[in-house]
Design a protein around this nucleic acid. Sequence first.
DNA 1: TATGAAAGACATCATGT
DNA 2: ACATGATGTCTTTCATA
Lengths: 160, 160
Amino acid sequence: MVQLDDLDRAILRLLKEDARLTISEIAERLNRPESTIHFRIKKLQERSFIEKYTIVLGEQLRPKTLAIVYVQAETPIIEDFLERYIQYLMKTLSLLPNVLAVARSDKDGVVAIIGGENGEQINKFVEETIQVMPTLKRVEVFPVNEFVKGDSLAGFLVSV
Amino acid sequence: MVQLDDLDRAILRLLKEDARLTISEIAERLNRPESTIHFRIKKLQERSFIEKYTIVLGEQLRPKTLAIVYVQAETPIIEDFLERYIQYLMKTLSLLPNVLAVARSDKDGVVAIIGGENGEQINKFVEETIQVMPTLKRVEVFPVNEFVKGDSLAGFLVSV
DNA sequence: TATGAAAGACATCATGT
DNA sequence: ACATGATGTCTTTCATA
């Protein structure tokens, strides 16, 4: 169950930058034989250190604005109800194409990353889709403007 | 300035699922000649609809827990100070490897996605790294537990 | 822009050090 | 872990429609 050495890490870093690098190019940059690189990548895939190869979509295909939304439900008398309510809320959100990510936050909360044309559209979406739900204790919307790190997050999450 | 047709979209969807699909495989699945697929992909790249090819790292390499942190600064007398303070805060956070993403949130706020071994470690990080900063009006931490959509976000953002 | 065919580049695998 | 070579597959280019 041991981990990665420097060569593995170097390969992963290169592939992260550009997953279309050929084995020969990687071999050249890292001064190793192609067969070694080939072998390492095969192992990295087998051991699921590389989960998948994918593309990041360009700005034209991404929502222009993002927001992070936190929703907290009232804690009801019957605990089981809370569980089912949260599950329903998450499921509902996850089916919407402008909802890029949805996750649970503790027992009684949900966080989501929402995309839209602009801040107003997102606010409207939150008002019309989320605020209308019953028994919510708290709904917070944090606009996401310029990224300093992790830009391209939207290009990774958005669907076509 | 118009955009993608159905074929383009179909190609993008396939590549998003698995960017290592060969042109021949894509051609076969979509019942088009290889040269057409090749041509389309070339165009998609040239026009930056495909921004990059990358890998998603597996669970073993991802932080086990995530949290979303929102930080709001006090609005000072001198506006220019706020600007520089926010910039400094974002820059500082973005240099830390357990900070997966950082973005501005309106004039006076910052949102970040933080990774850690567990919730306590993240809380400790927030207390020791963020709460200690001066002139903060508000700091909120939202734990991120199970994803319903957009899982693999961490595997995309994390660095090796 | 779409296609078919041909040339060249590449990954893959087996074998041996 | 590394080298080499054989094989089949894939990409890329180009001529044509």
